[in-house]
């Protein structure tokens, strides 16, 4: 029972916080702090995720966006120092994606966030409060999960709407 409990706690589908050493926990090159940017500095999601409302992908901001503020270090944070280094070197930060859908699925941010007017938090959770990068999706984009939400919100579950 204990073992099963532990397994569950560590499994990718567990709602509990995941220790960093788990292989399925996605590590980011820089421990980005959403909290500072959103709660303290008052950025909106789309200020950095530029295309979240208008395009297929929200896009993860990279040095072009970050350089606006972080050309020089703003704080003493060692994580920020890494970013400044990337910017200085003109190198892209190798962010890793956490939310992925397979090849045969069409997912459009515009369709959901803009047309469907779904708040970012519905899928991405209280991301604004996170002081460290999340290691796994808050809401896993599995077909069951998608279809459940579609059912509840009255969106179509017709296969070809999302599969091509």
């Amino acid at each position: 029972m204990t073992a099963a409990g532990a397994l569950f706690a560590l499994s990718p589908s567990s709602p509990l916080p995941q220790p960093d050493w788990l292989p399925w926990r996605i590590q980011q090159p820089i421990a980005f702090n959403h909290n500072v940017h959103v709660e303290e500095l008052g950025f909106e999601c789309v200020d950095c995720h530029l295309y979240a409302l208008t395009s297929v992908r929200a896009t993860i901001p990279n040095i072009e966006n970050c350089a606006d503020c972080h050309e020089e270090a703003q704080t003493e944070s060692p994580e920020e120092a890494k970013l400044v280094e990337y910017i200085a070197a003109g190198e892209k930060v190798p962010w890793r994606k956490i939310y992925r859908v397979p090849d045969h699925v069409y997912f459009s941010h515009r369709r959901h966030a803009s047309i469907g007017a779904i708040e970012c938090e519905v899928c991405h959770g209280p991301i604004a409060e996170q002081v460290k990068p999340v290691g796994r999706p808050y809401w896993r984009p599995t077909m069951d999960n998608c279809m459940e939400c579609h059912e509840e919100s009255g969106a179509s579950n017709d296969c070809v709407y999302c599969h091509d």
Partner: peptide, 14 residues
Amino acid sequence: TYLSEEGIVGQIYA
């Protein structure tokens, strides 16, 4: 393979 709401016969490769 199924008939979609809009009358397209869909083919779900996966």
